[in-house]
Amino acid sequence: MNLGPHAAFILLSYGAAILILAVLIAWIWLSHRALKRTLAALEERGVTRRSDERRKYR
């Protein structure tokens, strides 16, 4: 594919798009993993939310 005289700008824009979206996706995914881990740790220590108390006394 011939990108003409301004190939650098086209590649830079696509690079910027990939970079920004990758950072966004990574941020959401990594914080999801971290949250899951924190929740599991809290539950292991026996902390429950009010709506979960039924489960606790079962």
């Binding site: 959401i28 914080s31 999801h32 949250l35 924190t38 929740l39 809290l42 429950t48």
Partner: peptide, 23 residues
Amino acid sequence: TLHFAAMRNEILRRRVRTMQLMQ
């Protein structure tokens, strides 16, 4: 897709917050 995933994160974050407060 990202919005749904971020909303899920936010709900989990609030749960963590509530549980930490209760703890």
